[in-house]
Amino acid sequence: MSTATTTPTRRRAPVTSTGIVFIVLALTIVAGAILTAMAGRNFFSPGNISAILTGTSILGFIAIGQTLVILAGSLDLSVPYVTSLTSLVAGVIMAGQTSNIVLGVVVALGVSALIGLANGLVVTLLDVHGFIATLGMGLILAGYLATNYKGSAGSAPRDFRLIGATNIGPVPVSTLIMLGCAVLVILLLRRTRIGHHLYAVGGNREVARMSGLHTTTPVVMAHVLCSVLAGMAGLLLLARLSVGSPTIGAQGGYDLMSIAAVVLGGTVLAGGKGNILGTLGGVAIFAVMDNVMGVMEVNPFLKDVVRGVVIIAAVAVYARRTAGRPPRFGRQSLGDAALQEAR
């Protein structure tokens, strides 16, 4: 690390927002365990753990991608439609044949990458904010899906369906793939130049430009990866449902749910600050809440109310922590305080 000569005087930071996320997650788990026990069930049973983890994987994929895009200072509202489209494209190509799996996956992810590329280029080159650019892209895809697919289509071969059905211990393979992607993205953000530059561009584009960065590259990359990850979510849904569906993404509400998970995970909506770990925590909080409310047979309306309250409360907490200006003369006033103490 640093040479011995520097005396680190890092100020004792309060709990980081990622820290808060995991504290909240722990509390949610405790509360969930108690509530589940009251309903006469075991929260920690392998079956239930597996169910919760299964619940994390789809939103997990999408939220990881959304984190990248939000860190870059953009937003992706087209993800649910990309998810639907890839489930259909892959399902139709596979058509129940094991030999077509690779082709189906490659084409589906290729299509999502192209959609992400289009999003990224519109955002960077045409200077359209991501909110609008991807809202437009989402509408285009929604229109395409509604016109060309009257209902479910395609079919996943048995081998492909296994991805959605296999567990290693209580852990579903799909969750492991999602976590694998998370590790890769974390590595990308922390240990590659483009990852550092993504934070820089999202934090302050002008600073990034003045430091000689290509400000478009990280943003385009974030959009491409986000779409590809949404495509992976689509593939996973195909594996689970064994058919492609034109409405599966929109039904999941993955656009807003992923943004909510990202923000719940402590990433700043304006970009430049946040991390994947927090997002995973956010996704897990949602999964645990859904699971507990499912076990307790809470009505769906109340479910959404609870989710809504949690999102707003979390963001309010973060806002409080960053509110107010930094003290302008922190040290002098410390001295002042000491003087007062002495008096």
Binding site: H196, H197, Y199, A200, G203, N204, E206, V207, A208, M210, S211, G212, L213, V268, G272, K273
Partner: peptide
């Protein structure tokens, strides 16, 4: 021209 949420080192060597 600094990024407030990045470290000292990350700011100094940004882009390099």
């Amino acid at each position: 021209n600094l990024l407030p949420d990045r470290s000292v080192a990350e700011n100094i060597y940004l882009g390099r």
